[in-house]
Computed example of a mutant assay.
Amino acid sequence: MQQYRKMEDKEIRNRIVRKMLRNQVVGGHKKQIDTVVNMTLPSHEQGRGRDLLEDMVTDPDAPIEGYGGGHRQNVRLTSVEDAVDYLKSNGGDVPFGFD
């Protein structure tokens, strides 16, 4: 049986922000919450990742905002600068070309 390492919440949040930054999910570009979680995290962490991403949308210190209405639950970064600052202040890895 394969053993999976449980990721820390901070590591999950940093990974989500980093992936959204690399894919430039900012401005008019948006993604559904499920899409972000699925492209970012291993399957055994996706449930927790979804919860953390939803929490980040309501956290004024997080660089992620909800976008649009309806049932789709779209998210995007508030700005590239906010995402870079968030990663730097939370020990995350800033993608090449954004620092």
Rank of each mutant, 00 (worst) to 15 (best):
N38D: 03
Q46V: 05
V57D: 03
D93S: 08
G66D: 03
D59A: 11
P95G: 04
V36D: 08
V37C: 07
E54Q: 04
S79R: 09
R48G: 05
L21I: 11
V37L: 10
M39C: 09
K19S: 10
M39P: 02
L41E: 12
R72D: 10
D85C: 03
P60G: 12
R50M: 04
I64W: 03
P95V: 02
D51T: 15
G68N: 07
V25P: 01
I64K: 11
N90Y: 04
V57I: 12
L77E: 11
S89G: 00
G28V: 09
G27M: 10
R50A: 09
E54Y: 05
V26P: 08
S79V: 06
H71F: 10
F96M: 03
Q46T: 09
F96I: 11
L41W: 08
G66K: 10
G92T: 11
E81D: 14
V94D: 10
Y67V: 15
G27Y: 13
A83N: 13
D34C: 01
G92V: 01
D85I: 07
V36I: 13
R15L: 05
P63L: 09
V25R: 00
V36C: 11
S43F: 15
V57F: 02
L21C: 05
G91W: 11
D59S: 11
V25D: 00
I33G: 13
K88A: 02
T78S: 08
V36S: 04
I16G: 08
T35E: 15
G28R: 04
V84G: 12
V17L: 06
G47C: 13
T40D: 07
G70P: 02
R50F: 05
V37T: 09
V57M: 05
G49H: 12
I64E: 09
H29Q: 03
L41F: 08
K88L: 12
K88F: 01
R72G: 12
G97V: 08
K31I: 08
I16F: 01
V80W: 00
V80D: 01
I33T: 15
P95M: 07
D34Q: 14
H29G: 05
R72M: 14
F96W: 06
L21P: 00
D61K: 14
T35M: 13
D59I: 14
V17A: 03
R18L: 01
Q73T: 04
Q24F: 06
P60L: 12
G91D: 01
F96Y: 10
D85F: 07
K88W: 00
F96H: 10
V57S: 00
G47Q: 14
P95F: 02
G68D: 04
L52V: 01
H29E: 08
D61L: 13
V17Q: 00
G69W: 09
T35P: 06
N74H: 14
D34M: 10
N38G: 02
S79D: 06
E81L: 13
Q24L: 01
D34H: 13
M20D: 10
R22F: 01
F96E: 15
N90A: 03
G66I: 07
L87H: 06
K31H: 14
G28T: 14
G27A: 05
A62W: 00
Q46F: 09
N90W: 11
R48F: 03
F96C: 05
D34R: 12
Q46I: 11
L52F: 04
G66Y: 04
H71K: 07
Q32D: 06
